[in-house]
Structure formats: structure tokens, C-alpha cells
Amino acid sequence: MIVRRVLSLSVGIETPSLDLSAELSCLTASWPSPSPDTPLGVVYRIEEAEGRYRVSWDGTSEQGLGREEVFCALQADLSARLAESREFGLLHAAALVRRGKALLLAGESGVGKTTLSAVLLKRGFGYLSDEFAPLSSDLTVRSCPFPLRLRESALRLLPSLAPELTLWPTPFGATGDEVFYGLPAPWLSPPEAPVPVGLIVFPGPSASGGGELRKLTPGTAALRLMALTLNGEFLGDRGFLMVADLVERIPGYDLRLGGVEEAAGLVEALWERIVHA
């Protein structure tokens, strides 16, 4: 059985297929291991029949899955569990790390968080998270190292990703704009310790086609983060106070994405000016 940890949840993955087990080991390689005496919070059992797969856990199952859909099913269930957590504020954000501080790229799916993350990894940022940034009340984020999910259309805009990112050879998702998993290189592996947030950037499309950064008032940044807190209903006042504390101390910037390389350059220059000045 593959045993990993996603934040405080210990996860077991069991499959009789050696090939699939090897694949899942690779896709979860950067997830930490729980301590040996930790009971498993969830065990995913994967069975194969006639080339299709059935994943079952906690009395639930998904059947008739293609091989490339197995990991998606696991990730979807784990994401749903995280979104019900009361331990931390789960921000819809990518998180990167440089010299002990975290950069949050916050926004809805499709705004360019992952594409921008991929370019910033090439520029020397380390990896914390692609979709979910778990924020604690001490204003640190922890790693949630699911693989990056890169759309084929976005990949066409990017320079070579190697050696920092390895694309998983099998795509998944809708035909026509398939999604590839990007696995960060081992030297970009996320730190286990929580990382203090240093800067918040909200990427979005540019009307003019040119890249632009604009500082947000703390109140505006707070409103945006509240809307991007995936488990807000479970946190109540605590979530609000956490976000208010964050924007009081950490600057937030709106980023209009022109070219992704240009945007990454703007973010990196801002990071060096604001966080490491």
C-alpha cells in the first residue's frame, strides 16, 4: 500500500496492479509520509476489470474509470475533504516559496495561476501548492503538493519546462484541451514546515493585452480572499479574522496578465522589491 499524508490526513492507496501502483507512487512522490503510528484517515482501494478501474473508499465508489482518471478521482475526493476542514482557511490559490516566504497567486480556476506558477518555478521559486493554499491563523501556509494541472492550450504558451517540471505522459480531461500533470523536480520539493506569507497576487486577464500590476487596498484584497476561501462556511468569524489579519500585514496586488513571461517578470521584480528589499 502507498501511504502518504495530505496536511493532517493520512492517506492509503491500495491496488493489486503493480503498474498502476508505480504510477500513483510517482504522482504522489512529493506528498510527505505520515509517522508510522498514525492511523489512516482514508484508504482508496482500486480494482481493475477489463481495462477499467473502480475506486472505492468509505462506502463510496467510482466505477468505469479510465487509467488516467484514477488519480483525478482520488484528488477530487481529497480536495472535497480539504474544503470541509476547520483547521485552516483553504484559499483557492497557488503557493510558491522563495527564501522562506510564500507567494500566493489567488484566483478562480482558469485565471492563469498554474501557468504563472510554472514559469516562476523556472525562475527559481520553490513549490508549495497548485490549487489550495491552507492558511493558518499565524499567517503561514502549508504545502499541499498535488501535481500542477496544466492545460494543453497553456502549455503552448510556455517555454520548455524541463528540468524543473516533468509532464506526466498521459493527459486527462476534455478532449480538445487536455490537462497534463506537471511534477515539480525533487529539488523544488515543498518544505514540511509552515511558510509565512510574503506577498499576495491576484492574476486575471488583461483587456489591453499588456501586463500590469496594481496595488490593492487591504479591504479590496480581503473581499477577494473571502470570496476565494473554499471552506469559509465552516470557519465563520475565524475565517474573516484570518483574512483581515493577513491583508493588514501582507500587501495584495492585482495582476493583469499579458504574456505569461512578462507577468512572471513583473511578479518576480515586485517580490524582490517588496519581500526581499
Binding site: T217, G219, F240, A244
Partner: peptide, 13 residues
């Protein structure tokens, strides 16, 4: 809940 941040006021219901 109210929280003043710089010159603005955040409200949460």
C-alpha cells in the same frame, strides 16, 4: 463583525 483596515471598514455577517 467589523474590522477597520487602514481607512476602510470591512464588515462580515
Amino acid at each position: 463583525m467589523l474590522r477597520e483596515v487602514e481607512e476602510e471598514l470591512l464588515l462580515f455577517d
